[in-house]
Design a protein around this nucleic acid. Sequence first.
DNA 1: GGATGTGAACGACTTCACAGCG
DNA 2: CGCTGTGAAGTCGTTCACATCC
Lengths: 230, 230
Amino acid sequence: MILTTPNGMDSDTDQPAGPNEPRLSRASAGRLSLYLRSLESFRREGLGKLSSGQLGESLGVSDAQVRKDLACLGHLGQPGIGYSTNELIDAIRRALGIDREWKAVLVGVGNLARALLRYRGFQQQGFRLVALCDNDAAKVGTTIEGLRVESLDDLTAVVRKTGAELAILTVPAEAAQAVVDRLAATGIRGLLNFAPAALKVPHGVNLVTVDLTVQLEQLAFLVQWSAPER
Amino acid sequence: MILTTPNGMDSDTDQPAGPNEPRLSRASAGRLSLYLRSLESFRREGLGKLSSGQLGESLGVSDAQVRKDLACLGHLGQPGIGYSTNELIDAIRRALGIDREWKAVLVGVGNLARALLRYRGFQQQGFRLVALCDNDAAKVGTTIEGLRVESLDDLTAVVRKTGAELAILTVPAEAAQAVVDRLAATGIRGLLNFAPAALKVPHGVNLVTVDLTVQLEQLAFLVQWSAPER
DNA sequence: GGATGTGAACGACTTCACAGCG
DNA sequence: CGCTGTGAAGTCGTTCACATCC
């Protein structure tokens, strides 16, 4: 499988062209995650089969869009019948690369980090937080949710020992780039960044940034220019 | 100003067509937030003027893209010179509707809520958390960061008294839809949802969902299908 | 009949390229 | 000359419509 690489904005995932299977755009990948969430919910309700229309409706996506997205994963649907919930879930997890466990190290032990540590949703999707790092000497050595806080200086050792491939950044914006550079040097392959900063990552390291302020601003924008006049 | 309404996916911001100023796509709006972050950083460094190239480079956006985005805000650039940092910041804040204070009520007092409460970035961008609600009787009446936790049953009164227009949802996925319905009834106009659930909002209420698991999945996807074979 | 898979049409967004201004 | 603003061209993604299969 190969993914299409439209505009950049973050990450620098250059695609070193593999075999020419049907391409999976990043937009599709984003929706696949959502389909997965819906499908799991449908499965809990005991629904074994569903149509593109049903799946789409729950998310506000057109049936055609759903079929297009799913078509990339192979011939999973049966005309006249629909898709098997279980097969879809498996196929999507495979396509997203989450049909296995991913280990992540959490860098920056603040309130957000604590919240993420206690969040069960990550585990459920196969993400495991295996280590904690911070440069605050007062925090190093303390234990949170069963994990000992390690020094930032030991980053390389920690990554190597735990085998973490991903890192979650919950450090202040000013410190973020420096931490990224150190993380890149450890061979980490993916970064989930919560700092409100535009980060540069070297080739081969993937970056996804979640800027909560940006999300709030988008919301304000929508509200501001939507219906009822004020 | 009026915004273009491409595909839905979340929110239901129907655009009741206003005067035909240059349109601001949602994609552009997302970038404007990022420009803003960069511009503030440039300003802190004392940079009074900059070009579309400089601004774009810091974010991995082409200079042409930056100019196109900024062109919607009026004639701000001077050929041969560039843009004024201050003017740009003001114009973007106006365009995004954040040239004023937005009050928000936080519903669901868990770890994430605590992290958000302590996060200073919101205040800095003009977002103020003015109230806290939870349906857990054990939490009601306690105080966090100077805010008293109110009962969910008092939601309407709380919203009315504080004048909150936005709500931030940090409740479990199962509870989310019910809370949304109650919030919608209070006349809230925007929702920032952190629950991993596909929510339905009535007409006139705007929704932005931040699903942290989705973001991690995107990252796994990128790493999985990027360079170095494993 | 009911639902999939898919080319073709369409629309939105991005990049290109250049005229025009400071 | 440098940089903006902008039509034109190009690319990407979504919707339509229908042949096809159960």
